[in-house]
Simulated scan of single mutants.
Amino acid sequence: MTETPIRASKHAPIFVTVDLVIFTVRQDVLQVLLIERGNEPYFGLPALPGGYVRDGETLDQAALRELSEETGVDGRQLHLEQLRAYSEPERDPRGRIITVAYLALGPDLPHPVAGTDARAAHWTPVASVLDRVSLAFDHSDILCDALERARSQLEYTTVAAAFCNEPFTVGDLRQIYEVVWGVPLDPSNFRRKVTHAEGFLVPTGERRYPDIGRPATLYRRGPARLLVPPLLRSGEAAHASLCL
């Protein structure tokens, strides 16, 4: 018996966007860049910045363009990495839209500039978003994934230095870990670990002289990208990292 081939059905068009989770530390608080949507769907609701990938663009090029349009910052000067793709069929009411999310990290980034399709753009404390702010689309899920990626990166890579303006002290770096992980760290134990991690910190030969207290050695980021040995979170820090 000869089987009759099944005719392939026509597929709805699939569009690709990039969304950006941009973290910075401002006033000793981990903050994320949110926009206020100026178009439907979800008009007026907060969302992550992003947009469609244009013809002739790679994903990375689209992410860099959107980052520049939303913050005025050259993404090549930041830590920028691809987080993951989100492809739930019903994630966007406009149709079949797959988004590739990016994580960007930078030190005390400037006030953002709203893009063409946003009514406003502003830095918002991550904790307040997780507690009580509903984001458009599936952006709350993307934010949670990005937060855990950032926290995990601090364990195994030297990316924490991307939050610091150079030169910086060990105390400045510890503050980044405490803000991102959400727990206080023992200063002596932290200093020992980061100064002994191969290629993490390079002394500049200078010191910072505070009004009160001892002078602090200044460092810049070293050539290493992986932390050896890793700086693992304690049980308390791991629990604080749960995104509910």
Rank of each mutant, 00 (worst) to 15 (best):
M1K: 10
E3V: 05
E3D: 08
A8V: 12
P13N: 10
D19F: 01
L20R: 13
I22V: 15
Q31S: 11
V32I: 14
L34W: 01
I35G: 04
E36G: 06
R37N: 09
R37T: 01
G38T: 06
G38R: 10
N39M: 05
N39G: 01
N39E: 02
L45H: 13
A47T: 01
P49A: 09
V53P: 00
R54I: 05
D55S: 14
E57F: 01
L59P: 00
L59G: 03
L64I: 09
R65G: 11
L67S: 00
E69D: 14
E69V: 15
G72R: 07
G75P: 14
E81H: 05
E81I: 08
Q82E: 13
S87A: 15
S87L: 06
E88V: 11
P89M: 14
D92E: 09
P93G: 06
P93V: 04
P93C: 04
G95S: 07
R96Y: 08
I98W: 13
V100K: 09
A101R: 08
A104E: 04
H111N: 15
P112Y: 08
P112H: 05
V113T: 15
A121Y: 03
P125T: 05
S128F: 01
D131V: 09
R132D: 12
S134C: 07
S134T: 10
L135V: 03
A136Y: 07
H139V: 03
H139A: 06
H139T: 07
D141M: 10
C144W: 03
A146V: 12
L147R: 08
E148Q: 13
E148C: 09
Y156F: 13
V159R: 08
A160V: 00
A161V: 07
A162K: 05
C164E: 13
N165A: 10
N165T: 13
D172T: 12
D172H: 15
I176G: 03
Y177P: 11
Y177I: 05
V180W: 06
V180I: 15
W181I: 09
G182V: 06
G182H: 10
D186S: 04
P187W: 13
N189G: 07
R192N: 02
T195A: 05
T195N: 04
E198I: 10
G199L: 05
P203S: 01
R207S: 02
P210E: 00
G213I: 01
G213S: 06
R214T: 10
A216T: 00
L218Q: 10
Y219L: 04
R220W: 02
R220V: 15
P223S: 04
P230M: 10
L231I: 15
G235I: 05
S241T: 06
S241C: 08
L242G: 00
